[in-house]
């Protein structure tokens, strides 16, 4: 079905700006993998040459980024100088899995964890900020999937413990304000308990001054 192939090609051009760029530069040859009529090929070439296609690609990237920044706002702030490059690398071969764009955040977390574990990317604060945000998200998700009447009683709320290796009192506030934290924070052990009370995340630990 030609219209199906046309839509598949346009989808791919939208989520893979490199294909759109190749069609813009080379014309029809990059579309050879799709079973298209001459009119459909001409339309896709025209679309690729239209400046609105660049905007579409940007909007699609923004839509994919939405769930990531919703779940990992502090991580994204921390990674601001490298974020575009990291997302390019992730999305080069990773396509959206569904129309709700669920899973984009998990893919980004796994991608970063892989980068850290493999030593391909290093940042002194990334592992702990990422762990803190994924733990917080897991708690929020548990609330979203909790039926009415199943809420835990006070004192028995779900919690996660996150081990910071830099003082979270110095690390998190700048990130929460959208700024990078200071370089060279001294290392240490800072266990933090993140608890979901009602619909509020409470962060507590035993470090004096927190």
């Amino acid at each position: 079905m030609a219209l199906s192939e046309f839509q598949r090609a346009l989808s791919e051009m939208t989520v893979a700006p490199s294909l759109a760029a190749r069609v813009r530069a080379e014309g029809e040859p990059p579309l050879a993998a799709y079973d298209l009529t001459a009119r459909e090929r001409a339309r896709l070439v025209a679309v690729a040459q239209h400046p609105g296609m660049d905007l579409n690609c940007t909007l699609a990237r923004g839509n994919r980024f939405g769930p990531i920044v919703d779940v990992l706002p502090l991580t994204c702030t921390l990674l601001k100088p490298w974020l575009r490059e990291l997302l390019n690398e992730l999305w080069q071969n990773k396509r959206p899995e569904n129309y709700q764009l669920s899973g984009e955040e998990h893919a980004f977390v796994a991608f970063l964890q892989g980068k850290l574990a493999g030593g391909e990317f290093s940042h002194p604060y990334l592992a702990e900020v990422l762990e803190y945000e994924t733990a917080s998200w897991a708690l929020v998700q548990s609330l979203r999937h909790t039926a009415e009447g199943d809420e835990p009683p006070p004192g028995a709320e779900p919690f996660r413990v996150v081990l910071f290796t830099h003082d979270p009192a110095a690390l998190l506030p700048p990130l929460e304000a959208g700024a990078l934290p200071p370089d060279g924070l001294p290392g240490g052990r800072y266990p933090v308990r993140v608890t979901l009370r009602g619909d509020t995340l409470v962060v507590e630990h035993e470090t004096p001054g927190w």
């Binding site: 598949r8 989808s11 939208t14 579409n56 959206p96």
Partner: peptide
């Protein structure tokens, strides 16, 4: 697009 919904454009086209 795709019979198994395997292609998603991340926006309405």
């Amino acid at each position: 697009s795709g019979a198994g919904h395997e292609s998603n454009a991340a926006m309405a086209l």
